[in-house]
Design a protein around this nucleic acid. Structure first.
Length: 486
RNA sequence: GGCCCGUUGGUCAAGUGGUCUAAGACACCGGCCUUUCACGCCGGUAACAGGGGUUCGAAUCCCCUACGGGUCACCA
């Protein structure tokens, strides 16, 4: 194959959906694998719902995920423009051809008339579709209707008794009968083409070689093929990937929780984790390895191993995968990513000094093991930023033990002469238990409870240096005061 | 409802007629590690939707049924 051109063609009617991101990813991966071209095309023919905001969101999300395009509305390219509303002239010439050749016609039916027709067919238990009432209007008829102020749409004349076969790279041959397809609208009354028409013209004129998109488009494909044929345009290869389903096995929607890429971004998912996860949804690698960087995915991805069946979005696995990436990534990077969450919680100011940064790295390193996404950071680190510790029920119980005041006071003394390093604290803690002749649990649990208010948490040898001698002393005193009474 | 796609453990999935007494991952359960939780390590429970064929032999091929999904817009 001398040329490999694929596209991701979202309609900018909302933030980038997780399913859209996966479609984009599959296209991107294949383009990079084959040294081809990845094109971003904005399908904004729905004037009502499209917005530049959404377009921007989609581009930001794609970039955040690590997908860059070679041609697109923002960077141009030899086949532009890349926004459908800017290609109206192109569509017009093709529509005129269809009209001139009698392969399409004007239709003046009103919405009410169409609704009535649909209703009638439904009650007769027939396929609801357009029956072709305006197929052969006379010139006079047309003039009268236009005089009434009716704006026509253009309908494609669907040939009868034909079988259209979609050659699909993931599904094989899929046949459709044209009799089940009514003459469909290709240009709306406002002069804007519909999706089914614009997509064909764009894919053809942009010389797209492989159309890889979600399965919901499979049923539309025969319509599109009919247009390709009517215009004598070469067909691209098609590949329809299955949908992503929610837990209840219906198409993933807001009801299932977060569906847009930005939401995951905001909750502190790493783009690498999301990409890895999305790739595994509907595609299976050859070996048993499941952790892949974008580069590795580019290397291994192939349409042959894309599944036909829909996949349920498994939040548990995403959480695990994200936690895995958080644990694996360089501490420096995770800290940088965690910073905004700490700032939003008011724990850290806008300016971060070098010393503070080192402290933050230590902090993040101490808590990263137990989290699956960065949004958990504030809750996990709250104890380091509070002046008034609250003690959990278990912590209070632990502090009631009789040896506690003695343990805490001894610790306080030792702290003053202990180097605030992991090793220093570790050694001090060890000798403390030995000198006191107490079981580990009897000394370490009270310390933990006094210092954090909890019975679970990071390692003591992380907590103590992080808190510092003074703060530790303060907390120790508070705890002692609490149990010995005023 | 018509058309189209799909159906391997709770989830993602490997498997393309014999090597399947069916892999791996997440989740779950148990153990180890850890004087906490987690992480990590080790182990375990758990599946070919049902029924007919074809075949010496079927998770793999065909048919039917059931179930799930998609689509039938002047949305994409």
């Amino acid at each position: 194959m001398d040329k490999f051109r694929v596209r991701f063609a979202p309609s900018p009617t909302g933030p980038l959906h997780i399913g859209g991101a996966r479609s984009a990813l599959f296209n991107y991966l294949l383009a990079r694998k084959h040294g081809g071209t990845f094109i971003l095309r904005i399908e904004d023919t729905d004037l009502e719902r499209s917005s530049r905001e959404s377009e921007q969101n989609i581009m930001d999300s794609l970039r955040w995920l690590g997908m860059d395009w070679d041609e697109g509305p923002d960077k141009g390219g030899p086949f532009g423009p890349y926004r459908q509303t800017e290609r109206l002239g192109t569509y017009r010439s093709y529509v005129d051809r269809l009209l001139a050749e009698g392969k399409a016609y004007l239709c003046y039916c009103t919405e009410e008339e169409l609704a009535a027709e649909r209703e009638a067919l439904m009650t007769k238990v027939e396929l609801p579709r357009y029956l072709g009432r305006c197929r052969s209007l006379t010139q006079g008829c047309r003039e009268r209707l236009e005089a009434e102020g009716r704006k026509p749409v253009v309908r494609f004349l669907v040939p009868e008794d034909q079988t259209v076969v979609v050659e699909d790279r993931v599904r094989g041959q899929v046949a459709f009968e044209t009799n089940g397809i009514g003459d469909f609208v290709i240009v709306k009354s406002d002069g804007i083409p519909t999706y089914n028409f614009a997509v064909v013209i764009d894919d053809a004129t942009m010389e797209i070689t492989h159309v890889i998109r979600a399965e919901e488009h499979l049923s539309n494909t025969p319509r599109q093929i009919l247009i390709y044929q009517a215009l004598g345009l070469p067909l691209p290869e098609f590949a329809h990937i299955s949908l992503i389903l929610g837990k209840d096995r219906t198409k993933m929607s807001k009801r299932h929780g977060s569906t847009s890429v930005v939401q995951y971004r905001e909750q502190g998912y790493l783009p690498q984790a999301l990409v890895n996860f999305l790739a595994l949804l509907g595609w299976a690698p050859e070996g048993e390895e499941e952790i892949f960087s974008m580069e590795q995915l580019v290397d291994r991805f192939s349409l042959d191993r894309v599944a036909k069946n829909p996949a349920v979005f498994d939040m548990d696995k995403l959480l695990w995968l994200n936690g895995y990436y958080i644990r694996q990534a360089p501490l420096e990077e995770v800290t940088r990513l965690a910073l905004p969450y700490l700032q939003a919680a008011g724990y850290v100011g806008g300016e971060v000094s070098h010393v503070q940064m080192e402290w933050l790295k230590h902090l993040v390193g101490a808590v990263r093991k137990g989290i699956s996404h960065l949004a958990e950071i504030p809750a996990r680190t709250a104890l380091f930023f509070t002046n008034e510790l609250t003690y959990s029920a278990e912590a209070q119980r632990v502090l009631q033990e009789e040896q506690v005041p003695m343990v805490l006071n001894t610790l306080k003394e030792k702290l003053a002469v202990t180097p605030m390093t992991e090793e220093g604290v570790k050694g001090m803690l060890k000798t403390l238990a030995k000198e006191l002749k107490l079981g580990g649990k009897q000394v370490y649990m009270p310390i933990r409870a006094a210092l954090t208010g909890e019975v679970h948490g990071p390692e003591l040898f992380d907590i103590i240096p992080l808190l510092g001698v003074e703060e530790c002393a303060r907390r120790l005193d508070s705890a002692v005061a609490l149990v010995t009474g005023p």
